[in-house]
Write a protein that binds this DNA or RNA. Structure first.
Length: 613
DNA sequence: GCATGCGCACGCT
DNA sequence: AGCGTGCGCATGC
């Protein structure tokens, strides 16, 4: 234990140096302490080392030089950093240093920019690899960064004095990440951290060693992974919070946002463990919980609980609620059933692109609004497509598209308006009801629906309610203009895509060939089963995508897609420019491809996902 | 010579 | 834009 007197002197000195914008390095500290208090530099050095071990002082390597920080101050100042830092795996140092738990002064976790840059705080008491705060992952990360040394420098007080910097990336051997033990070490660290999480150590302290890691270069996802470790208990709280909020919002409010959750947690964080909940930290934990499946994130980035889609605002729960409210809700049960099944499937399939897609959606968010304008509604298929495809989307994005009942609308509409699924008058009436709420565009959809419905045989109609209108997977799907969907494109999730089909065929119509179909639109009275609606694009392989565009009448461009190795996921992530310029295809076809296929596929996919979220 | 103050640049959020 | 850090220079003792 350091001598209180020295601690005071040293901290004071560090503060002083900092205040005069001088680097609080060993030399300056010793000199100032000696000058002010007459202390022997060696003694000062020793005391400083003790303070570092106690995490009262943080040793950082900033821009290639060692610097010291008043841990308490650092933490207070850089809460944000802490949050980020907190995401990283905990430092083993916490474990071995019983003394480290010097809970009083140490809130070492915080990191200031310098700390971040310094890459590593030193709280590592044990220079041995196993105790090194760095996880193998982090090390790898740094190695990848290619500028590891400076930032990777972690001070290891225990080694040879304060000035000894240890590089966790293995450069100094103290923390050889590349060693076979690295992974194991990390696990152990994790465990210990977890242990700490529920033990006496305050969260900030637990995070100390790691926080420094907070390197600007670190990839968010890695951070998330690392952070996952820390927040065990927080995770529980988080999940509980989401559930609670979901319950609260089950009446049709917007899906949960990070802000909301944060706010909720904030009200409870105080009694939890006293730690400060930061947006970033919660986010990280959130990610973790989502990974674990305890929470779920919608495509738009909202948080909800697994069983309740979107906190009931737009998801299945909502759908069922909506159905219950509808006069004709005979089909609500099947809907729900289908939705719940689909959720799992789609969720997994699409999780990967969720974030990016959400981002995209955000970008396009305003569009639906404008297109909902009556004047934008044209009899042409394309216009129609936009309107309808967007409707659910906008609702999902919390846009009030259809009066105040948007929440229900997306799902309902998708269900009711689909020609293929529409089976009973009740649905039709529901659709009309929706039409009344939403306006012209819906009416049009209903019209199309009616037309299509009539074309169905009674048997077909009856079969539809079960949500399992089947298509023979082996049979090429015939789309308008004789375009067929390659058998290679599986239809496994057809049930999931039924809504899409409905939307696509009734509302979209873009599919098929760029020729007649696109001109004809809905007026042709031909309801095409768009390829996009038959399967989940997420599942498409590069070949599937190519086949799709070939079938759609863009054989040349299909080749470009193939050349660029665009698979379903990539396709759903493509942006306008990607299509127009990234594929090196002619502008004309590119525009058509984007507007009539890519965009539609994306929207359909998103909307479908949202509806089932 | 040393301590201190601070303008300014840099990097990060 | 705001913030933390610290180099480098000016100033004072």
């Amino acid at each position: 234990m350091s001598e209180p007197r020295y601690r005071e002197w040293i901290l004071e000195t560090i503060d002083s140096l900092r205040s005069r914008k001088a680097r609080p390095d060993l030399e300056r500290i010793c000199r100032m302490v000696r000058r002010r208090h007459g202390s022997d530099p060696d003694r000062t050095r020793a005391e400083l080392e003790k303070l570092i071990q106690e995490q009262t002082v943080l040793k950082v390597n900033y821009k290639g030089s060692v610097s010291y920080r008043n841990a308490a101050k650092v933490q207070r100042k850089c809460r944000r950093k802490v949050e980020q830092a907190g995401e990283r795996t905990k430092h083993a140092a916490f474990d071995n240093s019983g003394s480290s738990s010097n809970a009083k002064n140490d809130n070492i976790s915080a990191r200031s920019p310098a700390d971040l840059e310094a890459l590593e705080l030193t709280p590592c008491r044990d220079p041995s690899p196993s105790s090194c705060s760095r996880s193998a992952e982090e090390k790898r990360e740094e190695e990848d960064d290619g500028e590891e040394e400076e930032e990777a420098a972690v001070v290891s007080p225990a080694t040879g004095g304060i000035s000894s910097l240890t590089s966790c990336d293995g450069r100094n051997g103290s923390c050889d990440t590349s060693s076979p033990a690295a992974g194991r070490v990390e696990v152990e660290e994790t465990r210990s951290v977890l242990g700490h999480a529920s033990s006496d150590l305050p969260e900030p302290e637990r995070r100390t060693c790691t926080s420094a890691r907070n390197n600007k270069q670190h990839a968010p996802q890695l951070r998330a992974v690392k952070s996952s470790v820390k927040a065990v208990d927080l995770g529980d709280r988080l999940v509980a919070a989401v559930w609670s909020l979901s319950e609260r919002n089950s009446r049709g409010h917007a899906p949960l946002g990070l802000k909301e959750i944060l706010g909720y947690l904030g009200t409870q964080a105080a009694h939890a463990d006293g730690e400060k909940l930061t947006r970033h930290r919660v986010k990280v934990v959130l990610e973790r919980e989502i990974e674990k499946g305890r929470l779920r994130r919608t495509r738009l980035g909202h948080i909800t609980v697994p069983g309740r889609r979107w906190g009931g605002s737009t998801g299945a729960a909502k759908a069922s609620e909506a159905s219950a409210r509808l006069p004709a809700n005979t089909n609500s049960a099947p809907q729900d059933g289908r939705i719940s099944k689909q959720e799992n499937v789609k969720e997994e399939e699409s999780m990967e692109v969720e974030c990016k897609e959400a981002g995209k959606m955000d970008e396009e968010e305003p569009e639906p609004l404008t297109q909902l304008e009556p004047q934008n509604i044209k009899p042409e298929g394309e216009a129609e497509v936009k309107v309808h495809v967007h409707t659910p989307l906008s609702a999902g994005v919390e846009v009030k598209a259809c009066g105040g009942s948007v929440t229900d609308t997306p799902v309902i509409m998708e269900e009711e308006l689909q020609p293929s699924t529409l089976s009973s008058p009740s649905k039709l009436s529901s659709a009309h009801q929706e039409a009344e709420q939403c306006g012209t565009e819906v009416e049009m959809a209903v019209q199309g629906e009616s037309i299509h419905t009539e074309s169905l045989t009674q048997d077909q109609k009856e079969a539809i309610p079960d949500q399992v209108q089947t298509l023979t997977p082996d049979e090429p799907v015939v789309v308008s203009d004789g375009v067929t969907i390659p058998p290679s494109i599986t239809i496994k999730n057809y049930s999931v895509c039924k809504a899409e089909v409905g939307v696509s065929s009734c509302l979209l119509t873009p599919s098929a060939s760029p020729g007649a179909a696109e001109e004809r639109g809905m007026n042709g009275g031909v309801f095409v089963k768009s390829e996009s609606s038959i399967t989940n694009p997420v599942d498409w392989t590069v070949a599937d995508v190519a086949s799709y565009f070939t079938a759609a009448g863009f054989p040349e461009q299909a080749l470009a897609f193939r050349m660029q190795e665009i698979d379903g996921k990539s396709l759903l992530l493509m942006q306008r420019n990607d299509v127009l310029t990234g594929l090196s295809i002619r502008l004309g076809p590119a525009l058509k491809i984007y507007e009539r296929h890519v965009k539609v596929l994306q929207r359909t996919h998103f909307q479908d996902d949202e509806a089932f979220c």
